[in-house]
Every structure is written in C-alpha cells, then in structure tokens.
Amino acid sequence: MTVLIKRSMLAALAATFMAGSAIAAEVKSIAILTPQEGTDFGWNQQGIDAAKAAAKAAGIEVTVASGLGYGDVRPTLREIAADGASLIIAHASGYATSAPEIAEETQVPVAIVDSPKALKAGLVADYTLSGHEGAYLAGRVAAKMSRSKHVGIVVSGEPPSWNSQSAGFAQGVKAENPDVKITYAVIGPAAYSDAAGGRRVTESVIGAGADIIFGQGNGSSFGMLQAVETSKAADGGKVLFIDVIGDKTSVGKGHLLSSVVWDITPVYSAMIKDLKDGTFGTKRYAISLADNSVKLLKTDQIPDNVWGEAQKIREQMISGEIKLQPVFEATAVRALMTNVSAAAAK
C-alpha cells in the first residue's frame, strides 16, 4: 500500500512537471490588434508603441494590425495565429469575446482587456489596466488649480479602465478640497469617435461652471479639446484639459493641463516572460505609479509649487501612506460623483 502511494505521488509530481513544461513556450513573435490607427495620442498608440518596445527588448518580432474597428475580428485573429504568432494581444474591450474563442480554436495564447474573469492558464490573460493612481494625482492638481472650484469629467463610454480613472480623479479632487464640485457626463454609448458629441457635452459642462475638464474619449477627446479651446470659463478665463493615456502636448494649443500617461511596456514584457516561464494566464497585470508605468504629465500650465506638492503626494501613494482602491463599476463611479468621501483616499 505504501509503495502504491509513493508511486502515485511520484506519478503526480512527474505529471505536474510535464504539464508545466508543456505550457512553457518559446516566444518568437507577438502580434497586437487595435481598433484604430496607432496615431491617436492615446489607447491605440500607447498599445502599439508598448508592443514594439516589449518585443524589441525581448528580441522578438512584432506584428501590428491596426484600424480594425469594433466589429468581428475573428478572421484577422485566425490569420495572425496561422502566421505563427506566439502571443496575440487583442487591444480592445470589444475583442474580449472573439479572442478567447480563437485562442481555444488555434491554441495560440491571447491577452484581452476588461475581462478579468476570463483567465485561462496558458491560453488567456487579462490586462484590465487602471490608471486610477495617476487620475487621483490629476484630481489633486485640478482641485488646487480650479478657479471656479468646479471641475468636469467627460467620458465617451464607461469601460472599466475609464471608470477607475473617473473614480480616482473624483477621489483626488475631494481629498484635496471637499468643496470643489464635480460634474460627470457621458457622451453616449460607445461614442468613442463622436467628436461632435464630445464638443457638445464638454461645452455644456463648461456652461455649468467647470473650468477644468478631465476627459476620456479616444477620438472624441479631440472634440473635448476643441471645446476647451473655443469656450471661456465662467470668469472669462481659460478652460484647461486633462487627458488620459497619451501625451497630446504637441496638439494641445496651450490648454492641456496634464495627462495621466500610461506606459504598457512593462505589462507586455511581463506577458512575454510569463509565456516563457509557463505561467501565462495565471494572473492579472497592472500599471502603477511605483514603476512609472502610470505618471502625471508635466506641462507649462502647472505651476512649480503645485507640481512639487503633487510629487509629494505621489511619494505618499507609493509608500502606502495614501491607499486607493480602483472602482471599476459604472454605478459605483456615478455614486462617487455626488458623494465622494475624501476620507476614502486618505
């Protein structure tokens, strides 16, 4: 009986070792699929740039399929899998259903966003990223700088990544000054390319009294930028804009206050490493202030003293003195807008 148990345990250990070996893989190339071209100063551009950087660092090939839209990308996924990609990064929440299906079909690992429950060892990883720490810092800066003590948040949709940033921004504002009013408005359901809607809604929020706009919108964010450039605040002064993910300094025309800039390179590098180690699909990936994968953009619009104070807050967040939990649900975000507890982030 004892011999039998020992043999069984040895067999189990051997099976575990062999299984681990089977999952671990040689990584020759990665591919990234994006809904829009990689020139949006935002989500698509950061994703493509990061994939190229991670591939270069790992010494592997990268394939970019951009501008695929939000429709069915299964044919593209199959084609890329057939071309021999070791990992396919499906860089849009709209691809989170089709990509795992193709992963099952082709056995090529995929990385998806906004589906944290879809993890599957060796096959499906999720990288629902949250820049909430950076958004919190942006909120602190906005509250310090708002002349009207009224700021706005305008979004063109409510995916989890943006919800967490909207919540982070609101918490930052209230932590800095509980008396600052926050107005939150959604342009429309998945209005990512609705630039006219972005402008219209932003102008209304400015009309309601906001003089700093925190905007999340992909293409529609250019409409928001247009609104802040062509509108006056209630005091007749300049309206400022805080962007997310990318750096629009070169097109900001002096109205860009800051941006919560993401660097997704460490995330993709970690995925490549996990594929090699055989641990892909067993954990989620994150970006943070600590490794500079999330950071607040310094522009000429931010006075040095405000920037210095923001950096001190950043240090407090990294050290754990200020703790912040991401909020991903839209209903929870909406509740925060009218009743944000400053204590929650202190």
Partner: peptide
C-alpha cells in the same frame, strides 16, 4: 455665473441641441 439651470448652462444645452440637429 455657472451652475445647473444657470442661463449659461441652459443656453449651451439648447445651442448644442440645434448644433446636433442640423446635420440630421
């Protein structure tokens, strides 16, 4: 003076409604 139901806000809303309607 800004704020919900302020003249500026209501004007911006109505102006936006017309702007959105014209292409349609």
């Amino acid at each position: 003076m800004g704020g919900f139901a302020s003249d500026t806000f209501l004007a911006a809303l109505l102006f936006g409604a017309v702007t959105a309607a014209i292409p349609l």
